[in-house]
Design a binder for these strands. Structure first.
Lengths: 343, 343
DNA sequence: AACGCATATTTAATCGTTAAAATTTTAGCT
DNA sequence: AGCTAAAATTTTAACGATTAAATATGCGTT
């Protein structure tokens, strides 16, 4: 009862019990054709009976492969990223890979600490949405050690590293065009952290859409620096307090920002879809049942996560393959928040 | 340039470069008092220069300690649990611990696979919200190997395992009492998965509150089996379609369910707070800016996660300490969804 | 019966680190 | 200078698995 930490069952113990050598056990456990079928089964049956568990530290020491994959995002609480983490976790773990997780919150020090941890534990790969300010050099040590890196959601400008991202410019171009197409002239972009490829890409798309419609983009037309609900809520409140001619349409950096904006507008007594049009990006679950339902650009979080896993696998299999960079094309899902939808 | 996988810098390499033994290096790196201060610094300086990284697999093999902690929740996308995961991750990783993550989605097989992975990698501990149906025996192998287990959010009935949970009965008692106190007579409990200690505990609290007010609980008064937004939305739609005298107040299993319910009610043309009262549990960010703002029972996700980490530490330090079981007392945060709040 | 060859198994070295025991160096004291 | 005790360092043997090389066994052929 007070028995803590029973001595572990090792291959040596199994070998002794069966009267064979450890090498035989090791080979049998890995289904090596070097071992006679009968022996292999004898070993495997016995192993099942005594509940042997392979010691991965020992395996790792010998082989250099750990089957550990790091997954680090800038914010695992954000529903879009949480969904993506969940998808990558499911995919990796069903293949027997272990996942080291990190939410660095755009803090380079935390990201660096995580990478160092991967280094120490000798992880095989890393799926990363890089913290603001990350350069390729920050990943060099890990890569030099043989680690495969796949960037996700965000990339690094000009990198040849593998990545899976949205075509961010296209996302926002789509959203903004939709608003302009509905006749709006004062369109605002709300949210996003400048310096990230997502925010900068989306701003680029925003500008392109405005200009191709013959408009001009002013310095005030992007309210930036945040990407969450509460902050967006405050920002909209502040905006309407200080501007005499507030925008008639808001192209939001993501759905969460859109929800925050919509709740602020409701508090201000404005009706979203009639008085102000709002469009988001991500198509989270909530968009279907928000009030009003949110017009948003579709980004399939799970699909992105799964793609990243595929690419990581491919990279692990062939470290010298040419760069694999995927950029996903968006679609728009029109609902009522933009004032155009059904009903 | 094509140089992949540079040979790792080992303690042996450092020892040779410095003309000392590996033991000296090993001890110096761990700040052992057995080593002369001068030597220690010489080693540490050199180590910094050449970028040595300790191989944890080797350390683990020798010491049996890995500094790996498993964290498994039933749904890491749920904002409440995501927040908790984020908090535990932050706490653990700042102390140099690595986090293996898993979202088992109440699938015992996935949970079992994760625990097996912890076993193989010889994790030191596990923070777990157990999948529906988990028994103490399912954790026995891990504990026998020396792993410390702390249950979180959900527990196992009658267990002596360490845990940090909300006083679920008290949470729901508080919510229900509040609604009854406002004069409602047809109160419904919405959401939760029977068989989990959270749902069963909350239902118990619901019943207690109804009975202490002189009411009776009918079989129809708990609509159960889900805990997310979209499912709650559909459930409420269905409910209003089929019942002639729908409830006047809904005590929701959690905030997400409350949001789903509120959006459904809005679709039905009902005004939350006037026509129907809604109360949630969790006090997520969104509750402050939902429409209307949600009256909810406060559960501090981050605090729970941090407590669990503390307890895990304590357990690791003293495996034979008596059971540590924390049950957090709730408070209610009254806003407008219940019809009682300001304005 | 002797040989070669294929098949099956074992031996022994190794991965990088730690820690107990052994050894060397230094310092303190008479 | 000589001796002892303390301090500093090294030697050595693990930890549990994998794998190249060596050995043993069985089989068919001549």
């Amino acid at each position: 009862m007070t028995q803590r930490k029973s001595p572990p069952v090792t291959q040596r113990a199994i070998a002794e019990a069966l009267g064979v050598s450890v090498a035989t056990v090791s080979l049998a456990l890995r289904d090596s054709p070097l071992i006679r079928a009968e022996t292999r089964e004898r070993v495997q049956r016995h192993v099942r009976e005594v509940g042997y568990v392979r010691n991965r530290a020992a395996t790792a020491l010998r082989t250099g492969r750990t089957r550990i994959i790091g997954v680090a995002f800038h914010d695992i609480v954000h529903p879009f990223l949480a969904e993506m983490l969940s998808a990558t976790e499911a995919r990796l773990s069903e293949a027997g890979e272990a996942i080291f997780v990190n939410s660095h919150d755009d803090d380079m020090a935390r990201q660096a600490r995580f990478i160092d941890s991967l280094l120490q534990h000798d992880a095989d790969g890393l799926i990363l949405s890089p913290a603001l300010g990350t350069r390729e050099a920050d990943l060099e040590a890990f890569r030099a050690q043989g680690g495969a890196v796949v960037l996700i959601v965000r990339s690094i400008p000009g990198t040849t590293l593998d990545h899976v991202v949205n075509d961010d410019a296209a996302c926002m171009r789509l959203a903004t065009r939709h608003l302009l197409g509905l006749g709006h002239e004062r369109v605002l972009m709300l949210g996003g952290k400048p310096g990230t490829t997502t925010a900068d890409g989306r701003y680029r798309g925003f500008c392109e859409a405005v200009r191709e419609a013959g408009g001009a983009v002013g310095a005030d037309d992007w309210i930036a620096g945040f990407s969450k609900r509460l902050e967006a809520h405050s920002a909209v409140k502040a905006l309407w307090a200080e501007r005499s001619d507030p925008p008639t349409a808001i192209a939001c950096f993501n759905d969460l920002v859109a929800f925050g904006a919509m709740s602020a507008l409701a508090d201000l007594g404005l009706e979203v879809g009639r008085d102000v049009a709002v469009v988001g990006i991500d198509d989270t679950d909530e968009a279907q049942v928000s009030f009003p339902p949110l017009t948003t650009v579709t980004n399939n979080a799970r699909a992105i996560g799964e793609q990243a896993v595929e690419i990581l696998r491919a990279r692990l299999a062939d470290p010298d393959a040419p760069p694999m960079q995927v950029s996903l094309q968006p679609e728009i899902s029109v609902r009522r928040s933009c004032g155009a939808g059904a009903r």
